[in-house]
Design a protein around this nucleic acid. Structure first.
Lengths: 191, 191
DNA sequence: TCACTTCTTGACTACATAGTCAACAATTTA
DNA sequence: TAAATTGTTGACTATGTAGTCAAGAAGTGA
């Protein structure tokens, strides 16, 4: 009953996430959000409450989206090494965009000052490492990956290298530089 | 002649750098700067021009200070491996402060939107990698460090791992987690 | 002591932006 | 068609802050 909403909440949430990803939380104004989504400020308040709540919803969406992609990769019928190789290449493609990773960006912007934001970031990181670990475990079982370190250690290690690359990208490093670093980093896992 | 300045410019610059380091560029207000240094806004304008100019001076100071520490380490009479070990430990000590690295923080805050800021960051990174490379070269000469990769590649690799650790720190990772990642990362360099 | 110069201070301007409010529009159901 | 309900809109409030200005304070040198 009553007047129906004129916009698609899901579409607006997605576009808002893109704006936050490009500009960061504080630097994003309602004017930015309105320009991108066509939705006026008060409508945001009706649906998402305040800016921070909208941002948290955007983080959740980003995490679910990113982890889904990772899990799809993990579930594919291919060698663990090829999975990691594919991941490494996808990083290089994405790097071009120069936006970095929304979670890493947010970790830098918020530090540890907002418990819910920090929680969302830690969840994302934990889930990402968990998928990495699954790939590594199967690689270790097939003697394709070193067992000098535990699967957990290697997952954390790779994750850290990836995060570093995400920073290089934001500080203007060339594709070649990032490629070189990732190549060396990923080579550690061989037996 | 005329009235002498009441504050030490160098002291104020150093304290301003600390504020920027703690809060970031945009989030730092003149109120913050005045509270920390005791110097009023207009005096800042007299000596440092605007906020961005002050920030650039703070970046230069940070870079010079950080590189000086690194070079002091490099110049010491000890094994290259011990130098790297010492560096790794000093990272862990610093991590506690939770502030990350001012250059990394600034890279994230500014992206590539300010040429002078980007230039300062790239200079810092290049200088840091150069010192790392000097240590690595001498390690390779003494067969203490792998020659599977060039000294340049290894320097970039280590630098990237360190930057990653600086991010972990800001996103609330424990000392143990950071220690584990750095341990694995540094182990790659053995022959 | 006095003129001159530079520093210091607080008030002021201009602007951006998060969040609120109340009037109005559009739709459903009785 | 009319009442009820909910979405939409633009104007409004409150606040924070970068940067400016002019008056006055505190030194210096003749």
């Amino acid at each position: 009953m009553s007047r129906p909403r004129e916009f698609d909440v899901d579409r607006v949430l997605h576009q808002s996430m893109e704006v936050f990803w490009n500009k960061g939380f504080k630097a994003t104004s309602y004017e930015d959000l309105t320009r991108t989504t066509g939705v006026k400020k008060q409508s945001f308040y009706c649906v998402f409450n305040d800016k921070r709540t909208l941002f948290l919803k955007a983080l959740v969406r980003y995490r679910e989206h990113s982890i889904a992609i990772l899990e799809k990769l993990e579930a594919q019928k291919m060698s663990p090494l090829d999975k990691l190789e594919s991941l490494r290449e996808s990083l290089l493609d994405e790097e071009v965009s120069c936006r970095g990773c929304l979670m890493v960006n947010s970790a830098m912007e918020f530090g540890t000052e907002d418990d819910q934001v920090t929680g969302e970031i830690e969840l994302m990181f934990a889930e990402a490492e968990h998928v990495l670990e699954k790939i590594i475990i199967s690689g270790q079982e097939q003697q394709l990956i070193t067992t000098r370190y535990s699967s957990k250690e290697l997952a954390s290690y790779l994750h850290n290298a990836i995060i570093g690359a995400r920073i290089m990208e934001k500080s203007g490093a060339s594709r070649e530089q990032i490629e070189a670093v990732l190549r060396v980093s990923f080579s550690l896992i061989s037996p």
